[in-house]
Computed example of a mutant assay.
Amino acid sequence: MSAKIGFIGLGAMGLPMAKNLVKANYDVIGLNRSKGKEQLFIDAGGKGGYTLSEIVQECDILMTCLPFPHDVEEVILGDEGIVKHGRNGQYLIDFSTVSPTLNQKVYEKANEKGMKFLDAPISGGNFGAEEGTLSIMVGGDKEVFESMLPYFQILGENIYHVGKCGSGSIVKLVNNLMVGFHTQAVAEALNLGEKMGVDSDVLFDILHSSYAQSRVFDRHYENFISKNEYEPGFAMKLLHKDLKIAGELADEKNIPLPIGKQVTAMMKEAVDSGHGDDDMSALYLYLKK
């Protein structure tokens, strides 16, 4: 199946994903709030300069990768959004991390227009987005998932149909809850070791080869903390948003998250102190203060 694709949201994840679709010789129109990112996409061989309604009219498949739930509401369900201008037979894939309740709302509104919707949150960071090695957790109708599988295979290596609409988001929220735990553990452990006089590189080497090792630890230390550079691969404010949604989901079902609530509160403090636009690994900096 070959089709024209509209990709809305060319941020740290969306831009490399859209570029990979272009590299695979698909006709892709990109749209982003920041026109600098849109120009980078055009420079990479994509198309730009379209309004949202024009993209919806032009394209067979619409993909969104947006930072916050209110962005998803506006772009997909707003008065000038995708569903408003959509048509029967179009496919809509949302890679954003939002609540399963919002996914279900989009699914129902899209169905009313005859559009086919999948929630498909992603994991693997900007490095995975660039390399096309993302994990993609998909919720929605199985036959729709199978139709879109060739596109998912360009963007990721570990692709799962989880179940009904919203189930992809549930798995992603569980994933990011654990990422939050690991991020807190890395920050606390490094700070403790360093303040007790152990060289951080030595500490990392030992923990990396011990049971304390994790992919999050490797990522945070090797790519950010050891370099003292915190340009976001995944911004702390976005991780805090995901932890907050996971907490709300647990509260709805009366499921206790004792550690999760503490990590969410700590992350909020770090965001409020000015680290929201830093990479999530900068929790280490906040605790160090």
Rank of each mutant, 00 (worst) to 15 (best):
L15D: 01
C59N: 03
P100W: 00
M236K: 11
C59W: 02
A282D: 12
D79R: 00
H220G: 09
Q104Y: 09
K241W: 07
K172W: 09
G6H: 08
S169F: 04
L283Y: 12
E229H: 15
E188G: 12
S169V: 05
G46V: 06
F204L: 05
G78L: 01
A246K: 06
Y151D: 10
S214W: 03
Y160G: 11
Q262M: 09
L285D: 15
K241H: 14
H182P: 00
V56F: 03
I206Y: 02
G166E: 06
V144R: 09
K23V: 03
A270N: 06
K109A: 15
L239W: 15
M137Y: 09
P258N: 14
K268E: 14
N25W: 01
I225C: 09
N191T: 10
E157Q: 08
Q262A: 15
M267A: 15
G132I: 02
I255D: 04
R33W: 09
L40R: 13
F234D: 03
V216L: 13
V179C: 08
I206Q: 02
H220C: 14
I76Y: 00
G14Q: 02
P258W: 11
G274W: 08
M115S: 07
V162N: 04
H161L: 08
E248N: 09
M148V: 11
V198I: 11
N126C: 03
G274K: 06
I154E: 13
P69F: 02
E73W: 00
A246Q: 09
A185R: 01
D199C: 13
I42G: 09
P258M: 06
G260C: 06
H85F: 10
G114S: 04
N126F: 04
G124L: 05
K237D: 15
I29F: 06
V171W: 09
R87H: 10
L243E: 05
E58Q: 15
S123W: 01
Y284H: 10
M178L: 15
S123Y: 05
I8W: 00
C59L: 05
A129Y: 09
D79I: 00
A212I: 00
F7R: 01
G168F: 10
S123E: 06
M280K: 12
K109N: 04
T51N: 11
M1W: 03
L77I: 00
Y151A: 13
S123H: 07
N111K: 12
T64E: 01
L92C: 06
K241L: 14
D277R: 02
K195Q: 08
L155H: 05
V138G: 10
K244I: 10
E112M: 10
Q90R: 05
I136S: 02
K288D: 08
A212D: 00
Y50A: 13
L285I: 05
D279W: 11
D278E: 09
F204T: 07
F224H: 14
L177R: 07
I42D: 01
E58C: 10
S99I: 11
A212C: 12
K164H: 15
S200K: 12
M137G: 03
Y160L: 12
L31H: 14
F95C: 07
F127C: 08
V162K: 13
E112G: 05
P16W: 13
E108A: 08
K47Q: 11
S2D: 12
K35H: 14
T101H: 05
F41R: 12
Q153I: 09
N20M: 04
M13H: 03
G247I: 01
